[in-house]
Design a protein around this nucleic acid. Sequence first.
DNA 1: GCGATTTAGTAAAACGTTACACCAAAGTGT
DNA 2: ACACTTTGGTGTAACGTTTTACTAAATCGC
Lengths: 355, 355
Amino acid sequence: MGKKITIADVAREANVSVSTVSNLLNGRNGRMRVSTKERILEAINTLGYTPNQAARQLKTGHTPIIGLIVPSVANPFYGIFARHVESAALKLGFQVLLGNSDRSPEREYQYAEELWGYGVRGLIFGSSLFQVSHLDNLISRGLHVVAFERATEFEDGTQIDSVGIDNNLAARLATKHLLSLGHKRIGFLSGPIKTVSRLDRLAGYQSAMRDAGIASDPKLVWDIAPLGNSYGDSDAVDLGRQGAQELLSQPDPPTAIFAINDMIAFGAYAGANDMGLIVPDDLSVVGVDDITLTEIVQPALTTIRQPIEKIATVAVERLVARLTETTSEAQGHQIFPPQLIVRSSTIRVPAQNDN
Amino acid sequence: MGKKITIADVAREANVSVSTVSNLLNGRNGRMRVSTKERILEAINTLGYTPNQAARQLKTGHTPIIGLIVPSVANPFYGIFARHVESAALKLGFQVLLGNSDRSPEREYQYAEELWGYGVRGLIFGSSLFQVSHLDNLISRGLHVVAFERATEFEDGTQIDSVGIDNNLAARLATKHLLSLGHKRIGFLSGPIKTVSRLDRLAGYQSAMRDAGIASDPKLVWDIAPLGNSYGDSDAVDLGRQGAQELLSQPDPPTAIFAINDMIAFGAYAGANDMGLIVPDDLSVVGVDDITLTEIVQPALTTIRQPIEKIATVAVERLVARLTETTSEAQGHQIFPPQLIVRSSTIRVPAQNDN
DNA sequence: GCGATTTAGTAAAACGTTACACCAAAGTGT
DNA sequence: ACACTTTGGTGTAACGTTTTACTAAATCGC
């Protein structure tokens, strides 16, 4: 309704030129009389002027927005991740535009392109698909990407930045913990293993088992997608529940389960319950992430902690550094150590009643 | 690096004028030879053209983005809400820009103004503060707002749209359920009661108690903020835990707790546990929201379901209708019915050992 | 007191779209 | 064959900002 206030209105009100106002707005106020500055500031205030970012961006070619694409904020882990990303970005003067991809490359590309159109030149991915070639095009045009979790290399040798934990180690920590408690039949519970991190975790689990001299049993690895092409992020709990049920209804069921994340681990609780089993008495469970709920749930969940705030912060800083060209070092993968947090969901394997 | 592709490049490649390309892009292709159309489409493809939204917006004055401001996506309830909002918005051709406010009016205003600068003319609020006057300015300039939960009226009589559940009824349902199980000392566990919805819930709780002929005991209402000005959204669980502890360490402690949302209810589980009490044997708990975890947690949480997908969808549709001027009916509050979901966290009050 | 320098600003050309106003050529009715 | 209408476009002035190049006035060194 009210006519829009432009920089020209401010200039008129303050009796200066448009350029002067612009200069002040952009911090080029080195040579400016204090009185002038104050006059402009006051004009801005009384008029209620807000810079038109579209015009600004049109001129400068970029916008202080970074895109954040996660599988699904319905998963509390990504919700928290998103918050930390937002905090870090805000501190550096960037807004965050969030998208949920459900790990679909099409959705990811769609988002990336959409955001590109909005002048977004930096993207954080909350997941690690095997291939990022669907983004090659945009990246070659100047899009910067940092991924949570290690990313694969491009064919042409370029890499994207990434930051995350050592997933192989995370899985080994979890598996060894269970092994040390005397468990021998340890299930691996996952959504479809189509991401680098999930693959690494499977490898870590397998190597720990191998180190313990236990032949790997493919029947103990559950990684089926429930509904077509979902990766089970929004419905991780249901997925874990179903998986646990299936694992536990086998002839020689596992006495422990390593779940690929906490939400799936919670699902395993429910699945065990459905089968009349009690965690941890009949089944030990360990997860990954260490979301808030782990301490609340009964029994409190043993899990592998990801230093999520640190990861989010580093991801943002890295991205912003690229955007502002203060660094041109080669892309790389920054790794933080995962940490085993022992709570009450894992106990020594009960005396075997070998029958 | 690669020079940016503009509409002019496409026009040249397709041997038409810029206007023609623009016309096609904006669906004004009624009078256009099919061959021309195809030529343009092909040019767009081979060139990899993406419209510059900034320029587009600068011209049109608006952008197909709606803002979503929630207290904190770290709370899974808002994470899910955000997902539903995104789905609904995408279907109508809008992107979603998400912000976390922690219910701070300053942050809300900051976001609103920031988004305004980006051409955002529609905002969805995931919470209901008492006053929205900090947005008056923007609203009078043409910002449209729809709030989750009832909003207060403006001084000048204007209202903002809102959609939500009947919070008073929700609280009454929960409280009556507990009363029907024989509970008489029922605690009310909340973060600071500074939102309309929380106030309504308190009122509903109190009226249900009154109807049952039970004098209200202020000592049973816990609503203290833990750290200064937080509303306890990011740390709802901790808040609930602390509150439950304090409620339960009173001389005549409650036998049941009505928690203002599920996360706080989970916190109450933990708080009870800390005190050596077992839910539901020693304490019945009912929450609000019905997030996914309610079924997983032990015992499964009795709660009041909010039809969150419906609410999100309606909120978006309402907002988009305003933005596209297809409606000019008066603002109003659309209410959906809450629903009691009885699970295992509430049981009949055990035989009293009156000592 | 005069040229050089510094201070404090200003003018105007982009940036990539959209949308209004226009127009040439072909078709139509009589 | 003439006056209209329809078809399929085109030319160009905005939109609000940034930024490069420029300048008038004040100050300075000597």
